[in-house]
Structures are given as C-alpha cells and as structure tokens.
Design a protein around this nucleic acid. Sequence first.
DNA 1: CGACCGGTTGAGTGCGGTCAACACGCGTGG
DNA 2: CCACGCGTGTTGACCGCACTCAACCGGTCG
Lengths: 233, 233
Amino acid sequence: MKTPEKTRCENCIIRQFNSLKAFSKEELKTISDNKVSREFKKGDQIFKEGEKLSGVFCVRDGASKLSKLSENGKHQIVKIAKKGEILGQRSVVSDEQTNLSATALNDTSMCYIPKQLIIDKINENPEFTRNLLKVMASDLRESDNFIVNMSQHNVKQRIAEALLYLEANFGTDDEGFLAVNLTREDLANVVGTATESCIRQVAELKKDNYISTKGKKTKIEDKKGFEDMISGF
Amino acid sequence: MKTPEKTRCENCIIRQFNSLKAFSKEELKTISDNKVSREFKKGDQIFKEGEKLSGVFCVRDGASKLSKLSENGKHQIVKIAKKGEILGQRSVVSDEQTNLSATALNDTSMCYIPKQLIIDKINENPEFTRNLLKVMASDLRESDNFIVNMSQHNVKQRIAEALLYLEANFGTDDEGFLAVNLTREDLANVVGTATESCIRQVAELKKDNYISTKGKKTKIEDKKGFEDMISGF
DNA sequence: CGACCGGTTGAGTGCGGTCAACACGCGTGG
DNA sequence: CCACGCGTGTTGACCGCACTCAACCGGTCG
C-alpha cells in the first residue's frame, strides 16, 4: 500500500513537531507503508468517546476538537488539536477505549497509523517512548492549568484565555484575524458555559475594545489588556 | 547510605501499586541504597509550585494534596495522592519545574528517590517506561473527567463526587467514616468553590440523608442516591 | 419557498460569591 | 490557671453572575 511520494512520512515536515521525530528514515518507511491518509470535512466525527481505537491519527493539517459528553447532554471541549499533534496515543498506550470524541473543526487531513506499529515502536525505540512521555507530561500540565482556569475565573476571563490560546496555537491570517473559527457554541463549550452567556461576554469584550470582529472572524486587539484582565487588573 | 532492613525497597509492598513494580531485585537494591526516607507532619509542605525537583517522592503512607495557586490567591486542589503513588514524575520526565505544590494532609511517610536514578531507569528498563506511560495516560483520563465534572456540575454534585472519590481511594474506618479527613476549606478547594458555599451544601447533603457526620468525620450513607444526584436524578 | 442553523437580545431567577459576625476547641504565654 | 489568639466551622444577608426560556433575525441549503 504505497502512498504517493509527496505524502510519505519521510518527507513530511509535520513529524518534526511530535514524538515521531525520533524515528529513523528506515522506521518512517515502515510507518509510511502502513499508514492511511484520511480526509475529514468540517463537522465530520473522527472518532467517538467509548470507541476502541485501532490506531492513532496524526494531524497533517486542520483543527479538531476533543470533547466529552456529560450526562446533561452538553459537550465539554477539552482540547483543540492542531497540526502535528497525535490523537489517540493515550488509548493506545493504556489499551482502553477512548475517553474523548474528536470532531473536525475545518477541513482536516490526517494520517492513520495502526496501533500495533506504535506499540512495536514503544518497545523498540526508547527515544520515541521518551518523547511520548514528554508529550504526555506536557498535556498533564496543560490539563492542570485548565482546571485552575475553569474553576477560578469568570466567563469573560475564560473566553479571553481561550482566544489567546487559539491565537498562540493556530495563529492569525494576514489581517490579524484568528486562523481558526469556532462557532459561539463551540467557544461556549470550551469555556464551559451557555452559548448565550458566551455571546454576551464576547459582545462585552468587543465593547471594551479588547477584540474586534469582521463577519465571523475575530481579531485580538489588546493582548496586554487581556492578560491584565485575566489576572484581575 | 543503607536503610534499615524493614524499609528497604525490596521488601516494600507499596511498589506493587505503581510503576516501580517493573524493577528486578537488583534494581530495587540500587534504588534502596540511594533513596532517603522522609516523614512529613500534617500540614507540612512537601514541595512548592515552581521548584525544580531533584527527585521523586514515593508515598509510603498518608495522603497529600496537590494544588496550584491561582493569581486570585486561591488554591485549587487538583489531586489527592494516596499510598503507592509517585509525586514529581512529570517534572522529572519533562525536566521542568513543578507545576503543583504538594502538602501533607495527615502524617505522611515518603521515600525520596533522586531523579538521575529515575532517568537512568527510563533509559534502561523499557517495562518501567511503559508503566510510566500507563500511569500518565490514566492521570490524563482522570484530568479530563475532572474538567467535565467541574464545568458541568453544580457545587452539591461536585461535593458528592469528591466524597465518593475519597471513599473509593482512601476507604473508610471500621465505623464507615471516611479514612481521610479534609477540612471544609480543602474540600472547597477540591470542588473549586468558596468555603461557605461548601459548608452550606454539605449541610444540605446531611439534611437529605446522603451523608452523616460525627465530630469531624464524615460517612456516606446513600451512595446510590449520590450517584443518581450527580447524573441529575 | 420553507426549514434550519448560527447569532443575538430580552427578561426573570437562582446559585453561589462575598462580607461580617459568631461559636468552639486548642495551644501558648503571661 | 486563665486570658488570649488563632484556626476551623457555621450562619445570615446581600447581590451579581450566569443559566434558562423565549423570541427574532439573517444566511444558506435542499
């Protein structure tokens, strides 16, 4: 199952950003021969909470949300995965069902790598395993910070944080607007609030000249002010 | 620096519960020769957020809270570590400062293992590394669940969850009271609320016969009811 | 064209944060 | 020995943030 030259892992720059950078040319060839490229359209579900994954997804391009459904019917978005991240590693190392659902936020291309390959590599390539450890350590740190932010900040502050996070991780277009576009509902689900509350607070942020909007796009105008507001002036 | 026979790692049953179970008798001897036993009294700080740890702590007995200070001056408790857990692994694998502070909730005894030993073992013993991965994967899962609980449940539900968590992880004494005793303030910091709100909701739980108290001890009377209440009746 | 989705606004309400006062046990020092 | 201070637990009152329900608008798609 050879893939076209230009999408082979050996030539893929994305791998520089994740734990796969530990692999030799030889190993990358094996992976490339076993991977499958997959495309998702905006809104497509990549996998669902509770599924048993048979491999991991390496994000080549696009953004996808990782969310969990709580019994009151609301989706809490836990993380937004960007280019270079690998989804499903956790489930593979712990050999359990996924804890989260993944959904494409825009058109997304992924490489699907069968889990046995990953497990083999964990056993064979210590550097890869160490990279994995580091990635997970940093995810844990992020989770802890997220927990603190959620419980100690009000909705306005959490929205500010979410927007800063989006800018830092996905960047802006040439006019300075955020490169990823969350619906108000998604943004509400990130900060764990009702859609209406989210809309109202965004309107406040706009009124206070922290942000501006054009169509559905959002631009952060006053990053410094944001940071001050988050830490309570 | 030999330790007395009875506290040597080879004889320590605690290691069955954590990633250290991967080690051979030989390896345990090395660890034992390099570790230091340390005792903490209730309220003692084990390490502080931002410190650079030079090793990890293996909890031999007792309970300790892992918390993070937010800029509004409140401590958010992220996890309560029990017997068998290892504190500081994350900072060691990522070679960064700790993200969290650790404080003893009651008299606690720990073994301090220098970080170089852990790093060496990560490089030498693949099974140990795999165990580490699993522990961290499970921590991540817990964190995600915590985030959902925090953002989708009200204070009463979160307290119920916290109490169930304490019962499941630390058990009860012979009369059925929870074996660990959090102050109201600590409990409030776990669920991310004000101390007074916490007190009021606990009083409600008592009025509704979900729990009972005796002195400072708490007993869960209606676990089933708790679970129903958490998922919204 | 109508259905539907996303965004927006209004009005009402209640949960939970905050401040203030007080009760109680415990240790410490005069 | 008692006075005092301090930490913890508790209660009351007030109030504002954020949730909920409901209506409405504009764009898009079948």
